Amino acid sequence: MNAFQLPVVNPPLKGFLRWAYTLSITSIHEETMPWFYSNFIQLFCKKNFLEDGRQYYFDFFRGKPNELNFNNPFLLTCSVNYTILESLALDAWPKFIADQIRNGYYCVVFLDEARLSPAASYQKEPFPHHLFLYGYDWDERVFNASMFDRTGVYRNLQIPFREFQDAVQSMRHLLKEKLTADHHTYFYKYEPHSPYPFDKTAAIDQLRDYLNGETHLNRINYNSDNEEAFGIKVYDYLRLYFDAAEGNDSRLGDRNDVRHLHVLWEHKKMMSERIGYLVDEGIIPYDDELVAGYKDITKRAMKLRDQYIRHELREDHEMFDRLRLRFDEFQNEEPALLQKLITLLDA
C-alpha cells in the first residue's frame, strides 16, 4: 500500500505535546480508561522562575522521567538520538519513517519546526521541537502529522517529505554547531496491557499529595530539589506569575500566559470527568455536592481562560483582579471537594 495510517484520536489533554501525543494513541483503546482516570491528578509548577529568569512551567505531574521517556504502560517505546541516526542519508529519512509506521510504530521526531509551513515558528528563528507522525502517503509524498498550527490549534495535518527533510537537516546543523541539545526521537507501539482496573490506592495517594502540596510519585527515580510546588500550593505561584505578568516584570522568561490557564482548565475538566467516570462505573456513589462542585469550578476555569484570550486582543483592566479572585476561590473550594472524594473512594 502506498498510503497507510495508524489510528489516532483527538487527545483529552493538549496543554503539552507529551500528553497530546501519547494520549492520542492510548485513548482510542477503551482498556486504557481505568489507567487514565487513576492518573492525571497531581499538578506542579516551577517556584523560582523570577530568581533565575527561566520560563515558568505549570503542568500535570506523573512523576519522572518525562512522559515521552518510557512512562506510559501501554506504549512500547524506543528512543534514538541523532548520533545513532548519523549514517542515515537525508534522502532515506522518509522511507525509514514510513517503514516504522508500517510496522506499527508511531514516530515522534525531534526536528526544527521552523522549517514546517503549518507552524507558528515557520521561517523564523530555529525552533527545536517534537513532531508526531502517524501515517504517510507515498504517492503524494506527505506524512500525516499532529501538531499545534500557526493559530495555536492542535490538529492533524499533512507535512510534505521535502519540508520534513529540511527540518531534519536543520536540526543536524543546530546539533553540529552545539546550538541546541538532542532531545531524541521516539517510536511508540501500542501494546495491550494486562488487565488494569481503576487503582483506588494510587488515586487516593495522589489526592492526598495534592491536598498536602507534596508528591511521592516515583520518588525512587529522582531526588526532590525543592524548586517545584505541588498540588494546592501551585495557586501561590500562579498568583506570583500573573502578578509579575501584570507588571510586565522583566525577570519573567518566555511567557505563555494562556497555556497556564488552559492547563488549569484541563485539570479541572479532568477532575470533573473522573468523578463522572467513577460514578458511572459504580466505584463511588453519586454525590450532588461533589459532581456539581467540580462542574462549577471547571466552568469558571474555562471562562477564565477564554477571558484572558480576549484580554490579550483587547486589554481588560479587571483581568488580573479576576485571576486573583478565581485562584483564591479554587484554592479554598477544592480541599473540601477532594476530601469528600477521598472519603468516597476509601469507603
Rank of each mutant, 00 (worst) to 15 (best):
F49E: 05
S194F: 12
E214H: 15
Y190W: 11
F230Q: 00
L76N: 03
P73F: 05
R314S: 13
I342V: 15
L43R: 01
Y237N: 00
H311Y: 10
C107D: 01
D321I: 03
L338K: 11
A114Y: 05
Y56W: 13
P34W: 04
T151N: 10
E163M: 10
L131R: 01
L6V: 13
V234I: 10
E329Y: 10
F330Q: 02
E214Y: 05
I309L: 08
L6T: 04
K340V: 02
P335G: 13
W138G: 02
V258L: 09
R162H: 12
Y237G: 01
N10H: 07
I309H: 03
N256H: 11
I342P: 00
F16M: 13
L76A: 09
L338T: 09
F230K: 00
R155T: 12
A145C: 07
I97H: 06
D91K: 15
D316R: 01
K340Q: 08
K176F: 09
K295C: 14
R259T: 11
Q5N: 07
Q206N: 06
V168G: 03
L131A: 03
I284K: 05
W138S: 06
R162C: 08
F16L: 12
W35K: 01
E228C: 12
D99G: 08
R172G: 12
V109D: 06
F330V: 10
K295R: 15
E334Q: 10
Q169F: 12
Q123S: 06
L88T: 08
L338Q: 11
T32Q: 04
N156A: 14
H129M: 06
F36R: 00
Y57S: 12
P335R: 06
N256R: 09
A120E: 14
F58K: 01
Q158T: 11
R259N: 15
H183F: 09
A203V: 11
F242S: 00
S194R: 12
R162M: 10
R259M: 13
K189D: 01
L238P: 00
F320W: 02
R219M: 14
Y294E: 04
A114M: 01
P128C: 09
L75I: 07
K124S: 06
F40E: 04
I275F: 05
R322I: 01
D236K: 00
E312L: 15
F330C: 02
I297V: 15
F61Y: 12
V291A: 15
I275L: 03
Y122H: 09
L88D: 04
D280T: 03
L111M: 13
K268W: 10
